[in-house]
Simulated assay, not measured.
Amino acid sequence: MSDVSKSQAVLNGLCPQCRKGKIFRKPFYSLTGFDDMYEHCPHCGLRYEIEPGYFIGSMYVSYAFSGGLALVLGFILFYFFGDPDGWVYVGVIAPAMLLIAPVNFRMSRVVWLHFVAGIKYKKGL
């Protein structure tokens, strides 16, 4: 059995230390509980929230994801739809932000854990 790569672990929301345990209890499309995280990795026991308020920093990652999506949608509207009125931009971009909110929330925390936390992968855990 081959080990899970870092990119696979990030996309699947797996623990940065063992790359086997899930970070979230429910899938992102769950209407209730999409934000419900395990306190510790169910496989290796790693504590995800290292200190109180640790995930406040993941808001910067979330902001980058949202800003990137808004820019892409804005460019698409501008170049492919002939620069429509301002209300069209708002009418397209605002609902898109709401639709990606659960995925954005989860991915920003996963990226924060994997790339900022300094947690090292321990092969064989």
Rank of each mutant, 00 (worst) to 15 (best):
residue 21 G to Y: 00
residue 44 C to S: 15
residue 22 K to T: 07
residue 49 E to D: 11
residue 24 F to W: 02
residue 51 E to H: 03
residue 45 G to A: 13
residue 46 L to S: 04
residue 32 T to H: 06
residue 31 L to V: 10
residue 48 Y to A: 15
residue 41 C to E: 06
residue 42 P to T: 00
residue 40 H to T: 09
residue 29 Y to R: 03
residue 43 H to Q: 08
residue 29 Y to T: 10
residue 27 P to E: 11
residue 22 K to Q: 14
residue 24 F to H: 08
residue 38 Y to W: 05
residue 29 Y to M: 01
residue 28 F to H: 14
residue 52 P to M: 04
residue 27 P to I: 12
residue 23 I to E: 15
residue 23 I to A: 11
residue 46 L to T: 03
residue 49 E to C: 10
residue 34 F to V: 12
residue 32 T to R: 04
residue 51 E to M: 05
residue 45 G to C: 13
residue 38 Y to C: 07
residue 27 P to K: 03
residue 35 D to I: 01
residue 48 Y to E: 13
residue 28 F to L: 13
residue 50 I to E: 14
residue 24 F to E: 09
residue 49 E to S: 10
residue 37 M to K: 01
residue 36 D to H: 08
residue 51 E to S: 11
residue 52 P to I: 06
residue 23 I to N: 10
residue 36 D to I: 03
residue 42 P to W: 01
residue 32 T to S: 01
residue 43 H to A: 07
residue 33 G to R: 05
residue 21 G to I: 00
residue 37 M to R: 07
residue 34 F to C: 13
residue 45 G to H: 11
residue 33 G to M: 05
residue 33 G to P: 00
residue 32 T to A: 09
residue 39 E to F: 01
residue 31 L to T: 09
residue 28 F to N: 15
residue 42 P to V: 02
residue 37 M to V: 05
residue 51 E to G: 07
residue 34 F to H: 08
residue 23 I to Y: 01
residue 32 T to I: 12
residue 44 C to L: 14
residue 38 Y to E: 14
residue 21 G to V: 02
residue 27 P to D: 10
residue 50 I to N: 10
residue 23 I to R: 08
residue 42 P to D: 06
residue 26 K to P: 02
residue 50 I to A: 15
